[in-house]
Amino acid sequence: MTELFNNTKLRGIGEDLSLNLKPSRASSTEPSAGSFKDVLRSLVDEVDSLQKTADASIKGLATGETTDIHDVTVKMEEAGVAFELMMEIRNKLVDAYQQIMKMQP
């Protein structure tokens, strides 16, 4: 599902905003030094890996490797919530971008 975002504007926006939004004091407080783009990319990757785990467990249930229905549903639920979180962040980003674009008449 997250492949959708690889080619959309999301990463481009992240790149643009990273130039302006990086707070100057972030380097001292944040343990993981990296641009906003990298943080965003790692979030997308994590969500992707959760989706893939859920996918693998569905496959495992279908092929008879595992018989734990609850394991599969919990993983699907987790992947769903992670995806919703990512979408929420994406929406905020797009909103911010559009508001900035509206500043010029």
């Binding site: 639920e77 987790e78 979180l85």
Partner: peptide, 9 residues
């Protein structure tokens, strides 16, 4: 998996 959004779950 390090990315644990719902530890309670």
């Amino acid at each position: 998996n390090e990315f644990n959004i719902m530890p309670a779950m």
